[in-house]
Simulated assay, not measured.
Amino acid sequence: MKVVILSGSVYGSAEEVARHAESIIRAAGHEVRHNPRVTLAELQAFAPEAFLVVTSTTGLGELPDNFQALYSQIRDLLPAAWRGLPGGVIGLGDASYGDTFCGGGEQVRELFVELGIREVQPMLRLDASETVTPESDAEPWLAEFILHLNA
């Protein structure tokens, strides 16, 4: 299966989780594309069959700057070819921010609904106030995600 991993990161943690996810999903036998600076045209040319989005949250629950433009382009275009595809979201944040905890991930989940992408399992919420190893903390969730892709 062709899996695209999109990522939005401020300080690099989400990027590290995305790179780790890329190696795990590839080791499971899938074709994986992860480029934090991917364009919409490159994304469409890859013709993804599944989506994983790994994003941190900034400010008052917004997506990181490096993911904003692509997110907006996808939202404006709403590619019909992606309807019905499986997807998953890993959100990084800090629970001490209350209602905006993992707000970036929640925005991606809303976009999945608009696109018709099926979330195959609940979003993983990684709390920066509780973990210093988000990459390894994501592994059990990623194992389950891969099972859904293989089903």
Rank of each mutant, 00 (worst) to 15 (best):
E15V: 01
E15N: 14
E16M: 14
A18D: 08
E22H: 00
I24D: 02
I25H: 03
I25L: 09
A27H: 05
A28N: 04
H34Q: 07
N35V: 09
P36D: 11
P36I: 13
P36V: 13
V38D: 13
T39S: 15
T39P: 12
L40R: 09
A41L: 13
E49M: 10
E49N: 06
E49C: 07
A50T: 00
L52P: 04
L52I: 04
L52G: 10
L52Y: 06
L52F: 05
V53A: 00
V53M: 00
V54S: 10
S56A: 15
S56N: 05
T57L: 04
T58P: 08
T58Q: 11
L60R: 14
L60S: 13
G61M: 06
E62P: 04
L63S: 08
N66F: 07
A69K: 12
Y71E: 03
L77C: 08
P79Q: 06
A80T: 02
A80D: 09
A81D: 15
W82F: 12
W82V: 07
L85P: 07
P86H: 08
G87F: 02
G88W: 04
V89N: 00
G91L: 13
G91R: 09
G93K: 09
G93P: 10
D94Q: 12
A95E: 14
S96N: 14
D99R: 07
G104W: 03
G105D: 08
G105T: 11
E106V: 08
E110T: 00
F112C: 08
F112N: 08
V113C: 10
V113E: 15
V113D: 15
E114G: 00
E114W: 03
L115C: 07
L115Y: 06
G116S: 06
I117W: 01
E119S: 12
V120P: 08
V120R: 02
Q121K: 06
P122T: 00
M123V: 09
M123G: 05
M123W: 04
L124D: 04
L124G: 01
L124N: 04
R125L: 02
L126P: 02
A128S: 15
S129W: 08
T131K: 00
T133I: 05
P134C: 09
E135N: 03
E135W: 02
A138K: 07
A138N: 01
A138E: 01
E139T: 01
E139L: 06
P140L: 04
L142A: 01
A143Q: 15
E144S: 12
I146G: 02
I146V: 15
L149A: 13
L149G: 11
N150W: 03
N150K: 15
A151G: 15
A151W: 11
A151R: 15
